[in-house]
Amino acid sequence: MEEKQSLNTIYVLKDTNNSVTLEINIGIPGQTSMTSILIDGDGSGDEINGNFPETIIGTSDTLDGKILFITSTVTDTSRDSNFTELIIRLKGGRNAKRFPLSKTVNEEGQSVPYIAVIKFIKIPKI
């Protein structure tokens, strides 16, 4: 699997005013993480220790044109493996999307910073 720590993409919203959910899963078992989530604003965003459970972050109308910023640091505290991963899941748009990021550290206890920028756009009806 290709190692990737950075993501910049577009998430296409539905025409209808659907709720959009975000979920972030951290792997593998035994790793320690802190994730910062921010939607178009100043500051550092909310800090989440561990997984971010599936949560409504807005609707098609409120998210249109906005940018979701995610920064996460995953530290290798598992004694079974040096593999770290961060999976971003978005639902409620035109398609449900899964964006996996991962990296294996060389030494015990090293950390992996992950960054993601996702722009929400609603395609105007023609």
């Binding site: 802190m34 910062s36 910023f69 530290t75």
Partner: peptide, 24 residues
Amino acid sequence: SLNEIGSIQKRINHKTMNELQNFI
């Protein structure tokens, strides 16, 4: 130990978030 690790992770996230926003 976990709290100390969490505090440093927050610090890293804070710096990275500022840099990322400025860059974008």
